[in-house]
Amino acid sequence: MIAIISVVGKDRVGIIAAICIKLAEMNINVLDISQTILENNFTMVMAVDIKDANIPFTEVHDQLHKLGDSMNLAIHIQRQEIFDAMHTI
């Protein structure tokens, strides 16, 4: 089951590291990362496999939100299907 994590916020050292450590703790595998700096903002989209996660989706969601709050970043995680549905026929 693939989910998309999106991250937006002020660039700083260690954003990708912190998120990847958190994902590893939850046994979530990263499939793809695309990252750029847009108008001084760090923006990243990750595709992750949540099928073997060691906690339920809602807790993954909460943990990432908490991490986002502590690092002053907006982090969202959503199942991939919603983006497929809206943007592909």
């Binding site: 998309i4 999106s6 750029t36 923006t43 595709a47 983006f83």
Partner: peptide, 12 residues
């Protein structure tokens, strides 16, 4: 992989 622009447009 999905297009970043599409993902952020959905979130917006």
């Amino acid at each position: 992989m999905l297009n970043q622009k599409q993902i952020f447009s959905t979130i917006e």
